[in-house]
Amino acid sequence: MSSYHLDHLQYLETEAIHIMREVAAEFERPAILFSGGKDSICILRLAEKAFRPSDIPMPFLNVETGHEFPELIEFRDRRAKQLGAKLIVRTVDEAFAKGLATPTPGQISRNQPSVPKSGTSTTPASTPART
C-alpha cells in the first residue's frame, strides 16, 4: 500500500484550497461570506490552509438578518479579529430599505429574502421571469 494516498476529506480539501486560490488570483473584489455559523467557520479554516503564512487576501462579509444571538455576533467579530481580516457587516433591513431585496411573500424567515437578478437591464428579454 503506497503512502501516496488521500482519504475522502483530504481529497475534498485539496479541491477547496485550489478553488480559493483561483478566486484570490482571478477576481477583482472577492469576499468570504462569514456569519459565524458552522459552515463559514469551516470555510475560514480552509482559507487559512489556502493562504497562510500570508493574511487571507480578501475581506469577510456578513449580512445580518437581525435575528442573531448576541453570542454569535461576539464570536464573529472575535474570530475575524483573530485572523486579522477586515469584516464588512451589512443588514437585511438595509437591503430592504435600499430596495436591493424584498421580503418574500409568505416567508417568515428573513434568511430568504427575494433578491432581484443583478444587472436586470442587460438580461436578455427571453429569460423567463421568476414567479
Partner: peptide, 20 residues
Amino acid sequence: ASDWSLSGLRFPVQWVNRPN
C-alpha cells in the same frame, strides 16, 4: 489509487505567497 499521474512533477503556480 493509480488514477492520478505520479510520474512527472508538475506544479502550476496559482498564487505567489508573500506575507510581507
